[in-house]
Design a protein around this nucleic acid. Structure first.
Length: 423
RNA sequence: GUGGGUGUGGCGAAGUGGUUAACGCACCGGGUUGUGGUUCCGGCAUUCGUGGGUUCAAGCCCCAUCACCCACCCCA
């Protein structure tokens, strides 16, 4: 058996790569409009960065990291997410010394060692943004509204934006305590998974899909009941701004995010119809993270969006742009001399910005035309010995089935005219 | 890590023990000397993921193995 690509990775081939480019271009223009600048960080980092940044107790760190020893016997890890890296760069490159806040975005591959399934890969791609150095509720609203408007521009429908506040470390601890108290009596009625979650992550029980667990958690204390004054007003302000901006959201008091670093605002965007992994975006505020990895106390907020999942949603909703012909014209040269002259003509056309091609397989006139037609090329530029002798070029419109002759000296100009007209 | 499903040419897909492995699409070539899109003709799997086994005989049965898919956990 020939060598195969590693499990959970993919080759992006011509035909789909255009969809990626379209999505990336749309992302970049929305980011530009919101005043975000791109950041690129290494694809691997010291393992410790993720252990501290993402959190020792998370599944990502406990079982999903691609970790290896380098030749200097240092433990390195392929990045499973990028927030920790961006915060590391913020500290290491002293971005706190620049005008604040830093508004950054990234697009790139992430790596998690998991069993692949629909919408889940070992190498997957995320677009994300991070705002560092601003703690105002309006920042939270801007971040959420950026994704919202991106999805709107892409034409996605049927999305659900869930918003919650997980509070600061103080009220979060109180919530956890009250929740455990509430659930203690019902623990035996919960599913096995939830019984395990009881100690490790009781908040997650609220999110269990098991119907009986949902029943048992009715009336459980929510984050909303336990938020401190500061967290609660922050949350209210975020919601007010979002509402006025036209973002349709749902407050979901059961929304808890999996990564340890979140504080206050947490949110998630879901689409059904792309399979079990329906979250296409997740994010929130992380006011303690920069400090955690050794930087100055700095508030932060961001999100990560799964490129593959958004593409899947665009696909099922038929919102991807149609495939366009790659070439505008195809030169059909007959005879060696014509091939040499035609090749030079192509160079001229290309230098004017026109995408043009010619047969590279030595095919007959008939098969060259057939091939041009199948590729959806609009014009065939026929140059044979006869044309060459008369210093003319036949421009054949393959859509209309009509052709005209132009003198070779005027050819580039004539073709360019058609190109500019878009026909 | 756990459970289920699938594996036939570039793609889709017949075939459920018996001579040469349907068909469709795509691709390549041709239908007399330089004009495509329709049509016609031809080419394109010594072989059915891989390795064993059963049998006179296996793509079809058994075992193992690998790969992919889906779901759980969790997440983008």
């Amino acid at each position: 058996m020939a060598i195969q690509r590693p499990k959970g990775t993919q080759d992006l081939l011509p035909g789909t790569i255009e969809q990626w480019q379209y999505l990336e271009e749309t992302i970049r223009s929305v980011c530009r409009e919101y005043g975000y600048e791109e950041i690129r960080t290494p694809m691997f980092e010291a393992t410790e960065l993720f252990q501290r940044g993402v959190g020792q107790t998370t599944d990502i760190v406990k079982k999903e990291m691609y970790t290896f020893q380098d030749k200097g016997d240092r433990s390195m890890t392929l990045r499973p997410e990028m927030t920790a890296s961006v915060c590391r760069a913020y500290v290491e490159d002293k971005l706190y010394g620049q005008p604040q806040p830093m508004k950054l975005y990234y697009i790139g591959p992430m790596f998690r060692y998991e069993r692949p399934q629909s919408g889940r890969f070992r190498q997957f791609h995320q677009f994300g943004i991070e705002v560092l150095g601003a703690d105002q509720p309006i920042v939270d609203a801007e971040v959420i509204s950026l994704v919202w408007n991106l999805y709107k521009r892409l034409g996605l429908i049927g999305l659900e934006v869930h918003v919650n506040s997980v509070g600061c470390p103080i009220c979060r601890a109180r919530h956890r305590e009250q929740l455990q108290e509430f659930l203690a009596a019902r623990k035996s009625k919960l599913c096995n998974d939830c019984q395990e979650r009881f100690e490790r992550n009781p908040l997650r029980i609220l999110d269990c899909k098991n119907p009986s667990c949902q029943e048992e958690t009715v009336g459980a204390p929510t984050t909303k009941d336990t938020l401190c004054e500061d967290c609660s007003t922050h949350f209210e302000k975020v919601l007010a701004i979002l509402g006025r901006a036209g973002v349709v959201y749902r407050v979901n008091p059961r929304l808890v995010r999996g990564l340890d670093y979140y504080t206050k605002t947490a949110f998630e965007v879901m689409v059904e119809e792309i399979g079990a992994q329906s979250a296409i975006c997740g994010g929130g505020r992380y006011d303690k993270l920069v400090e955690e990895i050794g930087g100055p106390p700095t508030p932060g907020i961001g999100f990560a969006m799964g490129i593959e999942r958004v593409l899947a949603a665009l696909q099922v909703q038929h919102k991807l742009p149609e495939e366009k012909p790659k070439l505008f014209a195809m030169l059909i040269a007959l005879g060696e001399q014509a091939q040499i002259e035609g090749f030079a003509l192509l160079s001229d056309l290309r230098s004017q910005g026109m995408p043009v091609g010619m047969d590279l397989l030595g095919r007959s006139l008939k098969n060259q035309l057939k091939s041009a037609n199948r590729q959806g090329v609009r014009y065939a530029l026929i140059l044979g010995e006869e044309e060459l002798a008369r210093k003319v070029l036949v421009i054949r419109d393959l859509t209309l089935g009509e052709q005209m002759e132009v003198s070779l000296v005027d050819a580039v100009e004539e073709i360019n005219k058609k190109y500019q007209r878009g026909v």
